[in-house]
Amino acid sequence: HNLTITQGKLFFHYNPKLCLSEIHKMEEVSGTKGRQERNDIALKTNGDQASCENELLKFSYIRTSFDKILLRWEPYWPPDFRDLLGFMLFYKEAPYQNVTEFDGQDACGSNSWTVVDIDPPLRSNDPKSQNHPGWLMRGLKPWTQYAIFVKTLVTFSDERRTYGAKSDIIYVQTDATNPSVPLDPISVSNSSSQIILKWKPPSDPNGNITHYLVFWERQAEDSELFELDYCLKGLKLPSRTWSPPFESEDSQKHNQSEYEDSAGECCSCPKTDSQILKELEESSFRKTFEDYLHNVVFVPRKTSSGTGAEDPRPSRKRRSLGDVGNVTVAVPTVAAFPNTSSTSVPTSPEEHRPFEKVVNKESLVISGLRHFTGYRIELQACNQDTPEERCSVAAYVSARTMPEAKADDIVGPVTHEIFENNVVHLMWQEPKEPNGLIVLYEVSYRRYGDEELHLCVSRKHFALERGCRLRGLSPGNYSVRIRATSLAGNGSWTEPTYFYVTDYLDVPSNIA
């Protein structure tokens, strides 16, 4: 807008934040220059609390790290170098490059900038070799853009010569660093050979998330399962459950009422301010606690030095998902009996873990797994792929695949051998790939016309006998059925096997 004052003059007093240069501009645009008398524009009460600059400061050096910015700028000295009290560095987070010096300023003089007072450097006698002032900004957020400017702080001049310097606002972004852990990993099994893994992005990506790394490792069953005799009275049979499938998407929606109208769909109840505040506090606490764990609990591995020492970490090797089922080394339970199943799973520490690289999504279907087997899954978020990966501390989750139908069934015939004193040795093959492992066998036998009897055969007993022995049988026709019990439950009964026990007292003698 054009402003013209045809008559009258300007009068400025007691404006401590208004620089004289701005008042002189007002004289020019209003056409009143030359009308004012000496005392109409006070030299001592206008701009006496402001830094009124008329020179431009330029930054000469900028260096960044993930949490620091090192700045240096060209030296500046007023005509009387004693008038320079120091520099004021202003900075704040700036997602967009549209910041002005006066953003967030209120009537009390406060604003949204963080201000650092910096002492002037030592003055050199040689004007050509003056030290460049600077400042190291610490405690910054990774991968965050900051708006920065600097200006001088000078003393009051009796001659009211307006001098000083100020830089333009520059924008500097800190470097990326390792992201925080992925949030809320959930693993479920939808079949006997697959596990579905879902997660949420890290709360602090500290860069642009480029991919996720998912490692999985087959877990050995508890050692007590191999040692305890679950045929003993009072000892509860062990059981394991597989990871249940995901709930429906509708039930997972946030901010939804727990109660549904019987007449149909209901609208979600909005969260109160107290609920939102509580969630923010919980989120802040979780982030602080995660940072504490990362800094205190997890110790970084030592990389190899120039002395030739090897990095103890196993090298990563990509495998196809079809090879995942046989990740671990199978060892027989008892070496003397080769027909026992290889369900003991000690994992070799030198073995390469299978892994998958996930790009542009937060889910993965891990296939080719062994049925009813526990897996430990390790999830890392990465925001750099080359020249070397920059990934987060791992988040861990466990899951067990679903049982395989008929995996616990005894394959092959049940054979028998009759000894003296009416002892019958029953023999059968253990299931080759049971659900988890076989903890015991149930032997059901009966003599024709009598009630059915049951015998429990422990895992250890089966390994020693290759089956079991029935003792003290009365003469007669017998039928026997056997079924295995694994961590997933009972298998199917075998087809009945028949044998006849004679009275050993009636056996004919070869003595003449």
Rank of each mutant, 00 (worst) to 15 (best):
D261G: 04
G467Q: 04
L473N: 08
L235P: 07
K432L: 08
P338D: 07
Y448G: 00
C266F: 08
I209K: 15
F462E: 02
G472Q: 06
F355A: 08
R286M: 15
K317Q: 06
N435W: 02
G207P: 05
V324N: 14
S243W: 06
Y500C: 13
K460R: 12
E430R: 05
T328C: 13
P300G: 09
C456V: 03
P300R: 14
Y478K: 01
C267L: 05
V365R: 04
R240N: 13
T415Q: 11
V507Q: 15
M402R: 07
L369G: 03
N383Q: 10
A395N: 07
R390H: 02
L379V: 08
D250G: 06
N510S: 07
E247P: 09
A381V: 03
S268L: 09
G368Q: 05
P403K: 11
L237C: 12
D506F: 12
S315F: 11
P270C: 02
A407F: 13
P431G: 02
V345Y: 12
Y212V: 08
E495C: 04
R316M: 15
V331M: 13
F285D: 14
D291L: 08
K357W: 03
E265A: 12
E351T: 14
T272M: 08
D323S: 05
L235S: 08
R466H: 08
S398T: 14
L277W: 08
V331W: 03
A399Q: 12
F499T: 01
C468F: 07
V439W: 09
V214G: 15
N360A: 14
R400H: 12
Y504T: 15
L235C: 11
R240H: 09
D261M: 04
A394T: 10
G449K: 07
S458D: 05
G476V: 01
K233P: 12
A407V: 07
D385T: 01
P496R: 11
H425A: 13
N206P: 02
P245F: 09
L225Y: 14
W216H: 08
G322F: 04
H416E: 04
T340R: 06
K278S: 13
R376W: 14
R481M: 10
T401P: 09
D204A: 09
R469P: 03
T485F: 09
D385W: 15
F226A: 10
P354D: 11
D506L: 05
S479N: 02
A407M: 03
I276A: 04
N208Y: 08
Y292A: 05
E388N: 12
S392T: 02
N477Q: 06
P387G: 15
F337C: 08
N360M: 09
E260L: 07
Q256C: 02
Y500P: 06
G374S: 07
V324Y: 04
E290T: 07
R301V: 06
N208P: 14
V214S: 03
G476H: 00
H461V: 08
E227H: 10
K361A: 13
H461S: 10
G467P: 01
L321K: 10
K361F: 13
G489L: 05
K271I: 10
K302T: 15
E404N: 07
V439K: 15
V414D: 00
Y230Q: 13
P314R: 06
H211Q: 04
V507T: 12
K460P: 07
N383G: 05
V443I: 08
A335Q: 05
D311H: 12
P332G: 05
N208F: 11
V480T: 12
H425T: 09
A399K: 12
Q256P: 09
T485K: 10
S268N: 14
L228H: 03
A336S: 13
E389M: 14
L280F: 14
L237E: 12
S320G: 15
V423G: 15
P475G: 06
A407C: 01
L453G: 08
S342A: 11
N326T: 03
L379S: 03
L280V: 14
G467W: 02
G264R: 12
L280T: 12
W493F: 08
L453E: 06
R400K: 07
D222E: 03
E290L: 11
K233I: 14
T303W: 07
T333G: 15
S392Y: 01
V439S: 04
R353M: 14
A263Y: 10
L321F: 14
Q380I: 13
V297T: 08
P346A: 05
H461D: 13
Q384R: 15
R466S: 13
E417P: 02
F246E: 07
Q252G: 11
G264L: 14
Y396I: 04
T307S: 11
V507Y: 03
S203P: 03
E388T: 06
P338V: 09
A263S: 12
K317S: 10
V331Q: 13
S509W: 14
C266V: 15
F298Q: 13
G467R: 11
R319D: 06
Q429G: 12
S363F: 05
D311L: 08
S268P: 05
S284M: 07
I482E: 01
Y448C: 13
S479G: 05
F337W: 10
N477I: 05
P300Q: 05
F462T: 04
Q219W: 06
T347L: 12
H211G: 12
A336K: 09
D291Y: 14
S367G: 10
D250F: 14
T288R: 08
R318S: 11
